[in-house]
Simulated scan of single mutants.
Amino acid sequence: MLIGGIAVAAVGLGAGPANAGETGTIYGRKACEETVKMYREMGYNARCNNINGESYYVHYDRPKPGLRPSTGSAGSS
């Protein structure tokens, strides 16, 4: 998927060890928030993290079994 001029790999929902990760650099806050929304729709907890200026990345992880994914706002650190 191409968001904000940066390619973002879609996350496979099959069984496997990838329960947490980070995207590559995403340009623009809006593009980052759209990426967070995509990951949350797939059942991940996700949040935007500011690298510098308009550069962001998304950290995502799977919630523990029985817990619902986060629906809070996308924050930056």
Rank of each mutant, 00 (worst) to 15 (best):
M1N: 06
M1Y: 06
M1S: 14
M1G: 11
L2F: 04
L2S: 10
I3T: 09
I3R: 14
G5F: 06
I6Q: 14
I6E: 02
A7D: 03
V8A: 00
V8D: 02
A9I: 11
A9S: 13
A9Q: 08
A10F: 08
A10Q: 08
A10M: 13
A10C: 09
V11D: 03
G12K: 12
G12S: 14
G12W: 02
G12Y: 05
G12H: 11
G12L: 10
L13W: 05
L13R: 11
L13H: 02
G14T: 05
G14F: 02
A15P: 01
A15C: 02
G16S: 03
P17C: 10
P17K: 06
N19R: 13
N19F: 12
N19K: 14
A20L: 08
A20H: 09
G21E: 09
E22M: 06
T23I: 04
T23Q: 07
T23G: 09
T23E: 03
T23P: 15
G24Y: 00
G24A: 01
T25G: 00
T25F: 04
I26S: 05
I26R: 14
Y27W: 07
Y27T: 03
G28A: 05
K30G: 12
K30F: 08
A31S: 15
C32E: 05
E34C: 13
E34L: 10
T35I: 00
T35M: 11
T35G: 03
V36R: 08
K37A: 05
M38Q: 01
M38W: 15
Y39R: 07
Y39D: 03
Y39K: 10
R40W: 00
G43E: 13
G43D: 02
G43Y: 08
N45A: 02
N45G: 08
N45F: 06
A46M: 08
A46C: 00
A46S: 05
R47T: 09
R47M: 05
R47Y: 07
C48D: 10
C48S: 13
C48T: 04
C48I: 09
N49Q: 15
N49S: 01
N50E: 07
I51K: 12
I51H: 02
I51V: 15
I51R: 09
I51D: 06
G53E: 14
G53L: 07
G53F: 14
E54K: 01
S55E: 03
S55L: 13
S55I: 03
S55K: 13
Y56K: 09
Y56Q: 05
Y57G: 08
V58I: 15
V58D: 03
V58T: 12
V58K: 11
H59C: 03
H59Y: 14
Y60S: 12
P63R: 09
P63M: 08
K64W: 12
K64M: 04
P65G: 09
G66H: 01
G66P: 00
G66W: 12
L67Q: 14
L67H: 14
R68T: 12
R68P: 04
R68Y: 06
P69K: 06
S70P: 10
S70T: 11
T71H: 01
T71Q: 07
T71A: 00
S73G: 09
S73N: 13
G75H: 04
S76Q: 09
S76Y: 05
S76A: 08
S77I: 00
